[in-house]
Design a protein around this nucleic acid. Structure first.
Lengths: 262, 262
DNA sequence: GAGTGGTCTAGACCACTGT
DNA sequence: CAGTGGTCTAGACCACTCC
């Protein structure tokens, strides 16, 4: 507490938490705050930076410092997997109507812009281990971006890995121009005779890398959720590994675990 | 790229990613870096700060700047809920042996230090809504901290809310001195005739508040996972709402979703 | 053009760490 | 004690936003 910038940060933080400074409110100019606290401008800026790192403040160049508003959230539930499985064998027209993202967000197909990029890569050690194949095995790496037509930033950054030989039986699966595939991944896997038995999702969190912050248009003071989705076939094989980067402040992951009755 | 500190940060970041600077390596002194890049010390510090915010760097006062090492992870799977339910009606001695935390971490009861604090509170709006009770209803607020005996920082910060009247039938449930309750929450609820039907977990991520960083001993440049666990009874009522704060760099949440067979 | 935040300097002094 | 990072100043100039 002996430190000047911490004293300033504390005072402002308290004001924000107590609601004396509400969401969207503008703070006094930095020079003004410096006068009021009897400190230099850089010291005040240090305090503001701390608050920004905590996600409490939003800086707008040339405009001012504002109390951050909470962003609206997008949900992603694990019910989507059963939902997608149920649709995987449905008639084409029904599958084409909506995908799992529409299911989660409640948006229409027309509201969404979808982009896929395919690439053949040699399996890096970390992915090979999960897929249960030797390092260097040929994989199909698929990158997906989905965004609201009205917005600029995508919901998530998705990279999916499939074993090339496993899906090569259906050449249509190797061409990114067939995306978005009606019915999603499970429908794709079904086309080469694979039934997904269970999905495992591993979740951690960390600050975004600069490229991620850039592409997801994340303001400073936010985190990303890192989700690794592993799909198991009915024979126990791992058939898909997907890494998903989600904006932590806009995304709510929901997992429902049903329990056996007594 | 026109900006000096970004150029410096980029160069160091590239070196780290390429492995020219490996985990644990010490960087040259800040004054030395300033010379090398032909910039002032504060400018160099700005660059180092950016890298620290990304979780790439660890500053040690009086020692130096180091490339951050990855911390070992603790897992928390959603299988714990069924596991806990199975034990809820088991004989006392079996219940006393291990709890869900032991199940997740693979540690023994003796390795863990447990602390609980109970408090009666009036339901705040946000919690009341989830519990489906009027605002201001009397709740039992339970705060938990569990840590490794050998370590200082707890695994997580847990705050659980129960409706007072619902559990008052068993006065033992109102006394924190009865914690840790053998068999955990589901066993406690079972003692007042409640069977948990399903558990819903909502996950987001954000930077830690200073108090959280303090208590969990989080270094700068880390995020927290925010998990809200909602337990539903077989009659559809919400019987428990728990908020859990977990260190994002040390925790891996694992959710398994089984799918119905075709 | 007025007002805001963004970057940067050059140097001072303090606090911490390890020998 | 020497070397390191931590804090702070006073002021300069640039870049952006909005009127």
């Amino acid at each position: 507490m002996a430190v000047a910038y911490e004293r300033i940060a504390d005072e402002l933080r308290t004001a924000i938490r107590a609601g004396r400074l509400g969401p969207g409110d503008r703070l006094p100019a930095e020079t003004r705050l410096a006068e009021r606290f009897g400190r230099s401008v850089p010291t005040v800026r240090e305090a503001l930076r701390a608050l920004q790192d905590e996600g409490l403040l939003e800086k707008r160049h040339g405009v001012g410092n504002f109390v951050r508003r909470r962003r609206t959230r997008a949900r992603r539930t694990n019910l989507r997997h059963q939902w997608e499985k149920d649709r995987a064998r449905a008639p084409l027209e029904r599958r084409a109507q909506t995908g799992a993202t529409e299911h989660d967000t409640g948006l229409h197909v027309d509201d969404l812009v979808f982009r896929a990029r395919y690439r053949e890569v040699a399996a890096p050690a970390a992915v090979a281990e999960v897929l249960g194949v030797p390092e260097g095995t040929v994989l199909l790496e698929r990158s997906y971006r989905t965004r609201c037509a009205a917005e600029h930033a995508p919901f998530s950054l998705v990279t999916s890995y499939l074993v090339h030989d496993v899906i090569a039986g259906n050449p249509a699966l190797l061409d990114e121009r067939n995306e978005p595939w009606p019915g999603g991944s499970q429908s794709q896997l079904h086309s080469v005779g694979i039934e997904v038995d269970r999905v495992e999702e591993h979740v951690t969190a960390r600050p975004p890398a600069p490229e991620e912050a850039d592409e997801l248009e994340l303001p400073p003071g936010t985190s990303v959720l890192v989700l690794r989705k592993v799909s198991y076939a009915t024979d126990g094989r791992v058939v898909d590994v997907s890494d998903v980067i989600l904006p932590g402040d806009r995304t709510e992951l929901v997992f429902t675990t049903p329990l056996e009755r007594w």
